[in-house]
């Protein structure tokens, strides 16, 4: 997955969040590290095609832009920091919907759901609504929802933020199992527990606008 000199800012009157970033994400896990506000989450949303860069371009492994609907539906798995599950659908239904939108056959969706629910320790919660789950369970369910689609590109935004070691370990194990072959996984986090998972680490702190932080410190 190629980023070719991409620049992005949220409003024309705001400073650049990402300015002239160039990188090729290779198969395996890339850990994007950096302090809060350095643009890690923005990078992931650009890679997912949920935002579009004002300059430069991003190319998916299929040679398309990430805004391509087919890429988003069939080849992308994204885990957001907060809201990840449809509140009125059970965990199982969330997984089924995600798999179905990825155009997987029903049997495969069922098999994938069963697998990832088991790996992530959620079998007992499959018929529960997200609101009845704990934060860790919800985050694991979100990862299951992303993996059930068998995506080529998995993007995880702070997947272990605020989670205890046990939950973090379950998540790391599931990712280790999933990231094989040509699959690309980009994880944005400043959680050191994820460092063992990474094949490559990218320091994003050079995009951090220091002024505000220094002022706060003073």
């Amino acid at each position: 997955m190629n980023c070719e000199d991409i620049s992005f800012r949220y409003r024309p009157d705001r400073p650049w969040v990402i300015d002239g970033f160039r990188h090729t994400f290779k198969p395996g896990v890339t850990l994007v590290k950096g302090a809060s506000g350095c643009g890690k989450s923005t990078l992931l949303r650009l890679l997912a095609g949920f935002l579009e860069p004002q300059a430069g371009r991003i190319l998916t492994p299929f040679g398309t832009a990430p805004t391509d609907t087919r890429f988003q539906r069939c080849a992308l798995g994204f885990v957001f920091q907060q809201l990840n599950l449809l509140p009125l659908a059970t965990v199982e239904r969330n997984l089924m919907l995600a798999g179905s939108l990825a155009e997987l056959p029903t049997e495969q969706i069922a098999a994938n759901s069963a697998r990832w629910l088991r790996v992530l320790g959620l079998e007992a919660y499959a018929r529960r609504l997200p609101q009845s789950l704990s934060g860790g369970q919800q985050q694991r369910a979100a990862i299951a929802r992303a993996l059930v689609r068998e995506p080529t590109v998995v993007l995880l935004d702070e997947p272990t933020s605020g989670l205890d070691d046990l939950n973090a370990r379950v998540i790391i194990r599931s990712l280790e199992q999933f990231i094989t072959g040509d699959r690309i996984c980009v994880v944005s986090s400043h959680d050191t527990r994820l460092e063992s998972l990474a094949d490559e680490t990218l320091n994003f702190n050079h995009f951090l606008p220091l002024e505000g932080h220094l002022e706060a410190l003073v």
């Binding site: 997912a48 949920f50 609907t69 988003q72 539906r73 069939c74 994204f78 957001f80 809201l83 990840n84 599950l85 449809l86 509140p87 919907l97 995600a98 939108l101 990825a102």
Partner: peptide, 13 residues
């Protein structure tokens, strides 16, 4: 808004 955006992130048209 969030649920709609989430559905769109899944690929819902």
């Amino acid at each position: 808004l969030f649920v709609g955006a989430l559905l769109r992130s899944f690929g819902a048209p």
